[in-house]
Amino acid sequence: MKEQESYEELVEQLKQLPKKEVSSAVNQRFEAMEELWNKETHRKSSNSPKWYGIAASIAALIALLLWWPFGTSIQDHYSAMEDASDKMAIIHELSAKTLQDNDVAWLGDVLKTEENPNIRVFILDLLEIHESAETHDLLNPLQEENVPAVQMAYLNLARQFESEEIMDQLVVFQRRTDLDPSVTEKVATIISEINNN
């Protein structure tokens, strides 16, 4: 504690070291420099041809049209991110709107490659809420999924389909020997529900 206090004292001392004022000689040197700049600027403005301004404006407009990022998409932002937290923030942004088909397709692609399990769970949750996932292809990555919480999220999404289309996928998944008992129980329940329907 004493050590910490003496460090804090040192930091205060460093911050409070006195500052010397700039001498009048230095101020005068700057004023001389300023005068020179003003002369230069005046010379340039009286010499420049009038057509230059118009040409510059046209060039600027062309540059604006070519390079302005009209409608930079959320997907583009996501691809540019490396940090999992930043990526998750982008998915959260997406969650505020109604998902379109292209959003669902994109999320399906992200699920195949995204490494962070929290992001995968959140995406699956999003797809489940919006009930806009019409294709059971979204469940394909389940077979390779190793994180139990994510497996569970896939199964919760699968419940939405409840069709024989996904039965094969569930049966194959159920055969894995490394499943957590909760996950095994869930798969069995869903399979049973499909069979009973």
């Binding site: 937290s85 769970v121 139990p148 919480a149 994510v150 957590d180 909760s182």
Partner: peptide, 8 residues
């Protein structure tokens, strides 16, 4: 911030 997953 934190991103945490657990199973059991």
């Amino acid at each position: 911030n934190a991103l945490i997953t657990a199973a059991n």
